[in-house]
Design a protein around this nucleic acid. Structure first.
Lengths: 204, 204
DNA sequence: CAAGTTTTTGACTGTATGGTCAATAACGTA
DNA sequence: TACGTTATTGACCATACAGTCAAAAACTTG
């Protein structure tokens, strides 16, 4: 019997995500959000609780979407795992050299979080681990295929790809062009070529 | 005959840089800056012009300091260029896994800039190129030493190292620990091992 | 020591912003 | 069609903040 909402939460979260991706958490004003989502302040508060909470929702969605996208990119059966990673990295190079003002919510959260206990940090860290997991899985397949030596440290390599990706995002934002970014991606991929067993490398 | 200032601009810029590194441009309040620098609002305005301008000054100083540090790290004569890069990357891994809340002003500027024409962007881009230049110089030496094949693309490799470094910074901020970050650095360095001539790689 | 110049000080201002309140509208059900 | 419940609306509030003003202080030089 209650009056039904006239919006879908997921739509609101997604519009809000747009705003946050362009302005960031601190710089996005409540009015920006009201304008972008189409609903009133009070409705926003009823449904989500506040700016931060809304950001958190958008962040989670963004993280899931990113994981989904990478999973999909690395999950095709028509190419070898290594070829998929290669394609994916080249794709990222192009994406990140776009000229729009978007910055992934993960990066924003990382930079705008106020401390390690800040929910922003914990959600973000989880997202990074999730993402690394996807890379790791793909690299595992490659190893099973014999495209990577058995002794390779899949875990750190996975995190390495996450790091390179974040770095490319930042560089793209700085105005580094598609060509250079692509070259960087190719450089990054070269770690997959010259792999030796690396059993006892010093990780002091 | 004018009354002399009782502060040194460089001190003020450096204290302000601290504040910005912890809070960011938007989130740092003028009062934070007043407290950290020790001088009054009006004095800040007389000397610098405003929060943004002060940030810009701090950003430039940060950039120069970063370039200087890397130049110094890669400029010793007691080790081969490649060994120096290696040492430098491992050092970065440790630095970035610190638990303080600092974020390089370059990264902050990248994320908080409002557009490509924003001075924040231009200064930052210049800084990245400066930094890449330092890496390039070191890689050049390595090539001359024969530690790197002659056909190697020193330029993109230099940018690659900047990207990896930025990525590591973000990951460290996300709470990734020293061990993992070190492993990532070692992975990143592996591009220097397996280098082949790479003359005609597709940079579509 | 007086004049001139610039810095410092601290009170002040206007605005933008996150968040709240209370009244009203809309819906499902009985 | 009336009731209960929740959503919506728009006005409202407190505050925090970037930036300003004008008076007083401090220094140098003539």
């Amino acid at each position: 019997m209650p009056r039904p909402r006239k919006f879908h939460e997921s739509d609101v979260v997604s519009s809000a995500g747009e705003v946050f991706a362009v302005h960031g958490l601190a710089a996005a004003t409540l009015d920006d959000l009201v304008r972008a989502t189409g609903l009133g302040k009070q409705s926003l508060y009823n449904a989500f609780g506040g700016k931060r909470e809304l950001f958190l929702r958008a962040l989670s969605e963004d993280r899931d979407e990113a994981t989904r996208a990478v999973t999909e990119a690395l999950g095709h059966d028509d190419a070898s795992p290594l070829e998929q990673i290669r394609g994916h990295m080249l794709r990222m190079a192009i994406d990140f050299s776009s000229t729009d003002r978007r910055v992934s919510l993960t990066t924003r959260a990382l930079v705008e979080s106020t401390g390690a206990e800040d929910p922003l940090s914990t959600v973000t860290k989880a997202g990074i681990e999730q993402l690394a997991g996807v890379y790791a899985q793909c690299l595992d397949h490659a190893r099973e295929n014999g495209d990577l030596p058995a002794g390779v440290n899949v875990q750190s390599l996975a995190v390495y790809f996450v790091a390179v990706t974040r770095g490319m995002e930042l560089l793209g934002r700085a105005g580094v062009g598609r060509g250079v970014l692509t070259a960087v991606a190719l450089d990054a991929l070269r770690v997959l070529d010259g792999q030796r067993t690396e059993a006892a490398d010093d990780v002091r």
